[in-house]
Design a protein around this nucleic acid. Structure first.
Length: 273
DNA sequence: CAGCGTGTTGAGGA
DNA sequence: TTCCTCAACACGCT
């Protein structure tokens, strides 16, 4: 389950080996992964270009190409990039592969087929799906603006923080962690959350995301950075997946509930409703 | 074998 | 219209 720290780690790794590389050929074995054009058109627009830069906007991974096209990847739940030394190593769920000038292969893998790829011209991609609806990350918005945006909502605060059009980059793991650190009950209606608490949420989000980024993300479930190397944040998790274990702050037991249809871990004492 | 989990979108209800 | 909920997507794991 890649969240922002995992995406940042992946982008760093990709940059190390791919900048300036030529894409010789492209193979697509799952047509629906390409969201805004046909497989044939995608292959035509990507082949025989160079990778100029690789960046991210929130959880979206962006490849800038030398012909002014931009590829936008989203890992969704379990997508991964792999780099092989040659084409013979490609596996069944490597649905899109790019063969490079140096003989290596970038494989975009997702056995659950949820991951997505868009391609747009560079001059318009920020105004097209999926980036047109992405909100600012916790690093790009201040407490007053966020409060103004959400203080009338009846939806639980956790659901609002997971809404990537409002604030981007937090997923289920880190939202659970942020709300525990901020001592706010995840199910509380957002309109009852004060400006002071919103500020606390933002500071906490930045601190936790920064720390997780510095450690290469967490590795719960199937997340891996490139070829199976692992990040190290999971031992810092305070509530996520810790149902029944002691809260590190008050020693009571962590509980699990469902908020907005998502598994939600919290301390009933530290995070009173 | 049934159901959960996971991010996002989009349909449909209030 | 706007706000909000929830099914759907696909598949490995419990």
């Amino acid at each position: 389950m890649p969240e922002l720290p995992e995406v940042v780690s992946v982008v760093r790794e990709l940059n190390k080996s791919l900048i300036g590389q030529e894409i010789i050929s492209v193979d697509v074995n799952l047509d629906k992964m390409i969201k805004n054009t046909s497989k044939e058109n995608f292959i035509k627009r990507v082949s025989k270009t160079k990778i100029i830069n690789i960046t991210n906007i929130a959880k979206h991974i962006i490849f800038e190409l030398s012909n002014n096209e931009v590829m936008i990847f989203h890992l969704r739940l379990e997508g991964k990039f792999k780099i092989y030394s040659n084409i013979n190593l490609v596996e069944k769920h490597d649905y899109v592969t790019f063969t490079l000038g140096n003989g290596k292969v970038i494989a975009f893998y997702d056995h659950r087929k949820f991951a997505t790829i868009h391609i747009w011209e560079k001059s318009v991609y920020l105004d097209k799906p999926p980036l047109s609806s992405v909100g600012p990350t916790p690093f790009d918005i201040d407490g007053d603006s966020l409060f103004k945006k959400i203080h009338k909502k009846a939806t639980p605060i956790k659901t609002v923080l997971l809404d990537q059009t409002i604030i981007s980059g937090l997923g289920n793991i880190y939202v659970n962690e942020v709300l525990w650190e901020s001592k706010i009950n995840p199910a509380r209606p957002t309109k009852l959350v004060t400006i002071e608490e919103i500020n606390k949420i933002l500071l906490s989000s930045r601190r936790i995301l920064d720390l997780a980024i510095s450690m290469g993300g967490s590795t719960i479930s199937t997340f891996t950075i490139l070829n199976e190397s692992e990040g190290g944040y999971q031992k810092h998790l305070k509530v996520h997946l810790r149902k029944g274990l002691e809260c590190e702050s008050c020693k009571n037991k962590i509980e699990k509930m469902v908020v907005g249809g998502r598994g939600t871990y919290f301390c009933p004492v530290c995070q009173k409703y």
